[in-house]
Amino acid sequence: MTASAETLNPSSIAPPIEVAQRRRFWTNWLFVIPAMLFQFFWGWYPMVVAIFLSLTNAPIRGDLQWRWFENYARLVQDPLVPFAFRVTLVYAALSIALTFFIPILVAILLMEMPPKTMRIMMILWYLPLSGIASTLFWQYMYNESFGIFQWIATAVLGLEPQAFLSSERWVLFWLVVPGILMYGPGLYYMAGLQSIPKSYYEAAEIEGAGFWRKIWTISLPRLRPIIAMTLTFAIIGSLQEFTWMDLMTRGGPNGASRTVVMYMFTLLNNGRYGDATALAVMLFILIMAIVLVYRAVFKSDPDV
């Protein structure tokens, strides 16, 4: 593609193609070199050190001793580890299924509002939420005795009192529910939607396309690269979820919401830095595998 652009170059003082290509090659890399340096020194370098520590006794102070795969062997034999991986995978799947798509729809709908309403709604929908307040709020919502959810279940729907977060079977579902509203990257979709020319929709309307059809044939395909990235992000993020359970359930009941990262923190707090690092590396491998598979399946180019 680059070559064809070169041959079309009408400029008579253009340098020979190889020279131009070589120069282009170097300017291309100039774009990425600063980022590579930062990513190397502050991203990979400490991480590789950490991975290397997972093969040792990983002392906080004192002498380093090789343990090779002893830490890994210990984790493999720990019944809580496969359990934590299962919880993590189920949580990630639930969280993506339930929380990923609604914000896309909300962003599309928000763009439909008259400009003034949209300006207000946008502020209110995407107001950044503070940790303490939202935790307090959701703990209150979920309280089994006087929470709003319980009130809805018993007084409005006439059901038996529900267990919510203390039900082993449903706890992951209930942990995901707040994310339906509170999930972040809606703003990002709006940025993407704004780059869609209005004429596309007008043309579609002339062809008789309705509400859903326009979303399906114009909005979503144009958002596709953006969705590809947010989905990558969501996959990685949900597989590493920890804070939310830590605040709401502390991994309970009976470990039903203890994710891998949460177990990793438990190990850290038990002074098992080497084991914690090894567990993180195991999670790293899993996430990497999932992301690679996903990237192979989901092509992000809208023009294909």
Binding site: L80, A163, S166, S167, E168, R169, G251, G252, P253, N254, G255, R258, Y263, T266, L267, N270, G271, R272
Partner: peptide
């Protein structure tokens, strides 16, 4: 330090509150 107390607390939360 040996095994942590996590599995112990797992069972306690279940025994104390589980409605299943």
């Amino acid at each position: 330090r040996g095994p942590g107390d996590t599995p112990w607390y797992d069972k306690l939360t279940r025994w104390a509150y589980s409605t299943d």
